[in-house]
């Protein structure tokens, strides 16, 4: 039996700053892997916390809709507006819907949505769990016969992993609407013509890779936010640090994953 929030810590003898930094990095990686392993072990074994997963899906998904709608719409509209002069110089404004759909579906919707959700939901997870940790609410949950990892971590990670692809699809559609409004006001293109042209270059692989990518982004945000919050220490200062670190690390990882997935999809394509 181990304590719920216990991490592997090695107390080194006299060491240089560099070797301590290397040790800390590898210990950090080990602890994160252990945390992920525990998520799969506890999240997919009964009893399932269905009610709490639904609550978290509502919290992550529904409550993010206004922000995702606004950013998605503006992204589509602004990208269209900025792309027009370049295409117009070649007399190719009719390509705008195709260009926008490729950009939005392949990259912008997953990336922008994931970054926004990392900022909104990831920081919230870090702060909420961090606050629960430093005020002993996680311990209280454990001694009252509830597995806090299953109840707090597994449910949040699952919810954001399920909900981010939904938000990405929604954001993509809203982004395309923003683009359509801009194209329609400038070129008087009809709704049908716009979307017919827009979806012409989009393949099944684009949709699948976008959804899979957002699933991975969601998992990354959930694990990072929960890990930082669950291991917060040193009072309120630790809570702030957990929230901040959760966002920064999640954003860096999202960009790294984006780069790797794009490479992989291009090989498949």
């Amino acid at each position: 039996m181990e304590r719920n929030t216990e991490q592997l810590k090695i107390v080194p003898a006299e060491k240089s700053i560099i070797s301590k930094g290397v040790d800390d990095f590898f210990l950090g990686v080990y602890n994160v892997w252990k945390f992920i392993g525990r998520f799969f072990k506890e999240g997919f074994l009964p009893p399932f916390e269905i009610k709490e997963i639904v609550n978290q899906c509502y919290s992550v998904g529904f409550r993010s809709l206004p922000l995702i709608s606004l950013t998605g719409f503006i992204t589509g509209m602004v990208f269209t507006k900025q792309s027009r002069p370049s295409l117009a110089s070649f007399g190719a404004t009719s390509w705008l819907p195709s260009l926008i759909s490729i950009a939005v579906i392949r990259a912008l919707a997953p990336l922008v949505t994931a970054l926004i959700v990392a900022g909104k939901v990831g920081s919230n997870m870090g702060a909420e769990l961090g606050s629960m940790k430093v005020t002993e609410q996680i311990d209280a949950m454990e001694v009252s016969g509830t597995n806090p990892f299953k109840f707090l971590v597994s449910t949040r990670v699952m919810a954001i992993t399920f909900m981010l692809p939904v938000l990405v699809i929604y954001s993509g559609l809203i982004g395309m609407m923003g683009s359509y409004l801009n194209v329609h006001s400038n070129e008087q293109t009809s709704f049908t013509a716009f979307f017919k042209t827009a979806f012409m270059p989009i393949s099944f692989l684009d949709i699948i890779s976008s959804v899979l990518k957002s699933t991975i982004f969601g998992f990354t945000i959930g694990i990072t936010g929960c890990y930082q919050g669950y291991h917060a220490e040193n009072g309120t200062q630790g809570v702030g640090k957990a929230a901040n670190t959760a966002v920064v690390i999640a954003m860096i990882l999202i960009f790294v994953e984006e780069m790797l997935i794009v490479q992989l999809v291009n090989v498949i394509r």
Binding site: S131, M132, T135, Q137, A140, M141
Partner: peptide, 9 residues
């Protein structure tokens, strides 16, 4: 618990 540890939410 020392600080009661009530669930804030």
């Amino acid at each position: 618990f020392q600080n009661s540890a009530l669930y804030d939410s």
